[in-house]
């Protein structure tokens, strides 16, 4: 029973991580789409700049060649649009790989939990040795 609970806690933690990974992937996809859109945009073109909570302020595109990328640890670096696209796609691939690994671990835990569940069900069926409250 303790092992089952341990697996359950691990599975929940991994499922949370997968959810976060999904959000990161979506953010990276949005960034790549925006960098791609720069190619078709014109400098000086009117645009709306997001300031959070679905709100925007008016702005004009000052440069379609420069993109500022967050590189972690509170640091951002200016790159060309092409470099930024490449970097974002690399990160996207890393996130996809991480997500795949997490899903594999989750499947393994799920299998172990199913095995334990079967064992517990068997124990419950044994006459005279009913363990109440299992699962």
């Amino acid at each position: 029973m303790a092992a089952y609970q341990q697996y359950q806690a691990e599975a929940e933690a991994i499922a949370r991580q997968i959810g976060l990974t999904q959000l990161t992937a979506e953010g990276l996809d949005r960034a790549v789409t925006a960098v791609d859109a720069l190619e078709k945009a014109e400098e000086g073109q009117e645009m709306l700049v997001p300031i959070g909570s679905g709100s925007f302020i008016h702005g004009k595109l000052a440069s379609k060649e420069k993109v500022v990328l967050n590189i972690g640890a509170g640091v951002s670096i200016e790159k060309t649009a092409a470099e930024a696209r490449e970097s974002l796609k690399e990160r996207r691939a890393e996130v996809a790989e991480g997500s795949k690994r997490l899903n594999e671990v989750l499947s393994k835990i799920d299998m172990e939990m199913q095995k334990l569940q079967a064992q517990l069900a068997k124990l419950e069926q044994q006459p005279g040795e009913r363990s109440e409250g299992v699962v």
Partner: peptide, 11 residues
């Protein structure tokens, strides 16, 4: 290279 330090929402 042009580098920025993130301070809250500002760079």
């Amino acid at each position: 290279a042009v580098i920025y330090k993130n301070v809250g929402e500002l760079l």
